[in-house]
Each structure stands twice: as structure tokens, then as C-alpha cells.
Design a protein around this nucleic acid. Structure first.
Lengths: 193, 193, 193, 193
DNA sequence: CATGAATGAGGGTTCATTCAT
DNA sequence: TATGAATGAACCCTCATTCAT
């Protein structure tokens, strides 16, 4: 009884460990340069055992994407507690600025994943990273719409685009200040609307 | 006489063919998913012969980066023929918009290369892609400075950042319209300064 | 139960098979002319599987050296059962003479390995073969010392040097008699001390 | 006229340069780790040109062996100017001792070549290195015979064997003193006969 | 479920040798 | 004869995936 429950709990813990490890390592090293052994080691799971939780490497990539998507959900849920849509958006920008060190080192997890997955010939996962980005776009557009700003979709595109751009530049130039400078500009821009 | 010249010409043509093929294929497939055989086939050169011109795969990546850098030089040289710095910058944005189909399919060549190279543990080529981006930043800042706009470096950061962001989004969403929408906004922004 | 033990046993047997095959084939063909496939075939192990036990070719070379070192240990342990140091040394010479056919065909395993490894630019394994030879030198010197012969180190050097020299000549001339002639001289020399 | 002579002279100079380079580099790096490009570079001859003087790599190895054989001839010719055979042999040993640094770094040129060539399956060059050693043996035996020492062949075997052994040990232990210690012993031995 | 071991299909790289001029 | 360029066969090594227990 308890044994079987324990086992199930332990098992799902392992799954969670693997997912978290995948999200982390894939972000840091990229998909192609990360081996299953890397992820297994990071999750402290024997290599052969990985396949009981994820049938292929791609499923691990998918799980990592889902993890990033969940992080996004947490963030927007947190931001949704503000009454003012402008404050929500400013909170979003602040969250990006808080991640400046990570961004400078490895870029935006979803953005860099999207770049890498788009290079694939087989269109198996290309869309999935795009979907996460689209969800961010949608949430952002919803804020602008509630706020009453005209062309909310365009404004959302501008904001998310700016985020991806500044993350990429911070990463390419290895300079977290890029995040600060552009972040502050975005805050002023939101105030000016 | 002419023979030996021909031979030398043909040889350097081969090198150029390889460089061009590398730039193209690496942009389309990414560094890790591109085989030397891929590049060799695209350049119509036997695999073993590639090593006569490039001693390692990394040298081919470097050559591809240099090719992109040269394209940037051509573009800015062309734009420098305009008298007005604002026109130069608007020309830059227009050039980006002209590339919308390519951007939607494969992203910005230099930007995506930077993303992939930054995932590497060995810091051999990470900086090189960043350097090309920095040259674009510098040229852009120079235009703002000539123009007399305050904080030219920040403006340059905003513009290049926007370009990388919109390219990434166009690519991730597989939607060239992203380039058009953001591009037009940038044109209006430049007009408003 | 027994199954898992069997598995482990079979696995380590495989490792041992690979080590033995490496020792044999590397002795016969030399390091540079021996392919991993050669060793794998000799050990009846798929090539790809070799890397589960030895991460590089050099590790296989090291394992082969360790094998030869172990053989030396066995031999000296056996000889140590004689009470008289002179008998021990004469036993050593007799053992060399017993190997005359092998010596004529492939030389001394450790000696030829040392020659080949010393040709390497990267000083990764050069010392290792020398270390095995030094252990033979040390054991030999200890016998002379116990025996009470003056300058035991010099005598050891002379004896081991003679062994390497006669092995090389037997091999180069493809003549096992070299081992016999020189071996008998060494026996007489030991008796004369 | 003179042109064709010049050309021939220059050509044979090239051949000599290649032979000398081969002897040197093959001694230092071994046959298998030496590329034709290495030898060509050392001789300052374009790679493609090597094949007008040596049809295969093996022919270069053969040329290197011939070079070592010629050096041996020079040495014995020099020694033959001594009236006393014992002095000739002591001169030989002294010559070995003079080479102690080279021996410690790369071993005896002919001996190490013999070791490597004996590892080959195709019996194309195995005998050649042995032949050079045999010539040394023969000259040495002749000295002992002239001198009137009994069993001159055995004595020659002992002496040459000692040389190969001490060279191998000096090389394996990277210690030129080995040459000095054993060399002095051999001098005393010759004096005692 | 767990796990060490097995497998095989490439990928990058080297190099002796040959070719075209 | 001279020479840069060309060629292709091999080699070492990696790794996603599967198997046996």
C-alpha cells in the first residue's frame, strides 16, 4: 500500500527532477550540445532509467519547454494580482530586469530554445517554443487591451520583441547592463502611454 | 601562364564557394546540425578537400561569420551614400524589412549564430558573433550621433535590439508580418525623433 | 540474485578480455598500427562497446601496460619464493629465455611499448612504460643488495639493460637463439659474482 | 648545358635534404607519427614534389635507414684507423657515450626504427633495419676476431646488445647517465679481456 | 520500475597518394 | 621537373536508443 504510493511519489519526484534538470541544462548548453547523460547526471538519475519517464530526447526538450511555460504562468498569475494593467506590464519588465545576469549568460530560455529548434528540418518541436512565446504575447496584449491602449497586439509585439532583442544582445555581448538600460527605457515608455 | 593563374583563381573560387555555402547552410540548419558533408555538398566539393581550405569545422563557422560581417559592410557602405543620417537609419530598417521572408524562416544570420555559439563551453567563437553585432551597434550609434540625437548609444541599442527581437519573433512564429509591423513602427519612431 | 552477479561478472570479464586483447595486439602490432577495431575484434566485443570500458585509445594502452606490469608482479612474486637472491636472478634470466620465441617475433612487450610511446610529442604516456621498467630495475637491485654485491644499482642496470638489448636484437634479427646465447652468458655471469 | 647540370645538382641536393630530414624526423617522431608533410617541411621541399624523389613513404624510410647505415660506415672507417682492435672497440663505446643526450631523448636511431618496423604485418622493411644492426655486429665481431678473443661472435652480440639495451633504458627513463654508467662498465670490460 | 551494459550509425579529422597544369 | 590542389579510405570517438536482467 504505502509502498506502492511511496514508489509512485518517488517516481514522480524523479520525473520532476529530470524535467527541472532538462530545463536548466538545455538552457545553459543548448539542445544539441546537451547529452542525455548530462541531464541524467544533473538529475541524479541513472541514464538507462530516463527512458521510463521520457521515451526520447525530444520529450525531454518538450518537458523543459513546459517547465518554462509553467514559470511564465506563475509570473503572470503573480502579476495579475495588480489592479492596474500598466503596473502588471511594468512588473513584467521588472521581472525581466531581475533576470539580467542569467540573460547575459544564457539568454532567454524560451527564446534561445526557439532559435535552436527552428533550425531543425523535421518540424516536430519548432512550433512548441513559438507557442510559449505566443502565450506571452497574448497575455501582454490582454493587458494593453484592458488598459484601453489602441492596437494592443502591436504594442504587445513591440514589448515582447524588445525583451527578446535585449536578451539576445545581453547574451551576445555578455553584458547584463543591456537589460538594465533597455528595461528602464521600456518602463518610461509604459509610463508615457 | 594563364593556366597557373586559372588554377589559382579556381582554387580561391572554391574557397569562396565553401564560405558562401557555409554561411547559407549554417544559417539554415544551425552549427550543430550542419555536417561538413552538408557544406561540402552544397559547395560541390569533396569532403576530404574541405580540409585543404579550412582546417577545422570551427574555421568554417568563422568564415561564415566573416561573410555575414562583409554583408553588413556592404550594406552600411551603401547606406553611407545618403547625406542624412536619419535616411541612413531608415534605409537600414527598410533593408531589414526586405529580408522578412528569410528572417521568418531562419532568423537573423548573426543573431542566431550568436545564440548557438554562446551555448558552447569552450570560449573559442562566442565573442566573434558578438563582435559583428557590436559593429552594427557602433555604426548605428554613429548615425544617431551625427544626427545630433542625445544618448546615441542608447538609441542604437534600442534599434538593434528591436531588430534582433523582431527577427527572433518572426522566426519563432514563422510570420514575416512581424517584420513589417515592427519595421513600420521603427520607421515612424525615427521620423518622430 | 545470481543474475545481477552474473551480469557484473560478465561485464568485468569483458573488461578483462579487452585488456588482455589490448596487451596482446599492441605488443604484436604496436600502438600506432593497431586499430580499436583490431582490439575489439580480438576481444570479441563490438567496437562501440569498447568505449563503455575505456574512454580513449590511450586508456587501452595504459591498461595493456598495467597488464604487463601485473605479469611482472606475478613473476617476481614467484621468484621471491626462492631463498637465495642469486637463484632469484637466475630464475629471472631463465624466464626471459623461456620467452625467446615471443621475443624474436615481437620483442619485449614493455620495451617496445616504451620505444613507441617515447616518440610522442604529448607527454601523456611516455613515463608510464618507463615506470614499469624502473620497477623491474628496483626489484633486481634489491636482489643484488640482499645478496651483498657491491653497487647493486649498477648491476641491476647491467642486467635489465642486457635483457632489453637481447630482446631487441632477437627481434630485429628474428632469431630466438640470441636470447639463448645471451641468456646463458648472463647465467654464467651471475654464477661468477 | 650548365642549366641542365645545375638542375641536376639542385635536384640531388633536394634528394639529400629530404633524406637527411627523413633520418632526423623519423628518429625523433617515429615512422607512424611522422607525415610526409613533416619531412617535406623540414627539408623545405613542397609536398607534391617529394614524389619525384621517393615514390612512397616507405622509400623515405629506407633512405633514412641508408643514411644511418652510412653514418655507421663513417664511424667504423674512422675507428679502423686505430691499429689496436681493442682501441677500436673502446672508440666505438666512446662514440656511443658521446651520443648520450640524443639517446636519452630518442633512443638509438636504428634500434628504435627496427622496433617499429618489426610491428608491421607486411614484411617489406622489417629486415632492413636488422641488416644495419647486423653490419654493426659483423664489424664488431671482426675486431674481436682480429684481437684474438675467443667466441668473437658471442662477444660482439654482448657488446651490441648492451648498446641497444642501454640506449633503450636511457630513452625510457629519460636519463643520459644510463649511457655513461653502462658505457664505463663496457670500457672496463674491454680492458679486462 | 531500475539499471548497467550494449549497439551501431554517423561525425570530424588525418594523410598517403595522385592529378592537372 | 615542379607544385598546389584533390581524393577517398580509415580512424577515433560520441551518443541516442535499446536490451537483459
Amino acid at each position: 500500500m504505502t509502498n506502492s504510493v511511496d514508489r509512485r511519489v518517488r517516481a514522480s519526484q524523479k520525473r520532476r527532477r529530470l524535467t527541472a534538470a532538462a530545463a536548466r541544462v538545455l538552457h545553459e548548453q543548448g539542445v544539441e550540445r546537451t547529452t542525455l547523460a548530462d541531464i541524467a547526471r544533473e538529475a541524479d538519475v541513472p541514464v538507462g532509467n530516463v527512458y521510463y519517464y521520457f521515451k526520447t530526447k525530444d520529450e525531454l526538450v518538450q518537458a523543459a519547454l513546459a517547465e518554462h511555460s509553467a514559470h511564465l504562468d506563475e509570473l503572470t498569475a503573480e502579476l495579475d494580482r495588480s489592479a492596474d494593467p500598466r503596473d502588471r506590464l511594468k512588473g513584467l519588465v521588472s521581472a525581466w530586469m531581475d533576470q539580467r545576469e542569467t540573460a547575459a549568460r544564457h539568454g532567454c530560455p524560451t527564446g534561445t530554445l526557439a532559435v535552436e529548434l527552428d533550425k531543425r528540418a523535421d518540424g516536430t518541436l519548432d512550433a512548441e517554443a513559438g507557442a510559449v512565446i505566443r502565450r506571452l504575447l497574448d497575455w501582454t496584449a490582454a493587458q494593453f487591451r484592458t488598459w484601453g491602449v489602441p492596437d494592443p497586439d502591436d504594442h504587445a509585439l513591440t514589448l515582447v520583441s524588445a525583451y527578446q532583442g535585449m536578451s539576445l544582445l545581453a547574451n551576445a555581448l555578455r553584458d547584463p547592463d543591456v537589460m538594465t538600460r533597455e528595461g528602464n527605457r521600456l518602463l518610461r515608455w509604459l509610463d508615457s502611454l
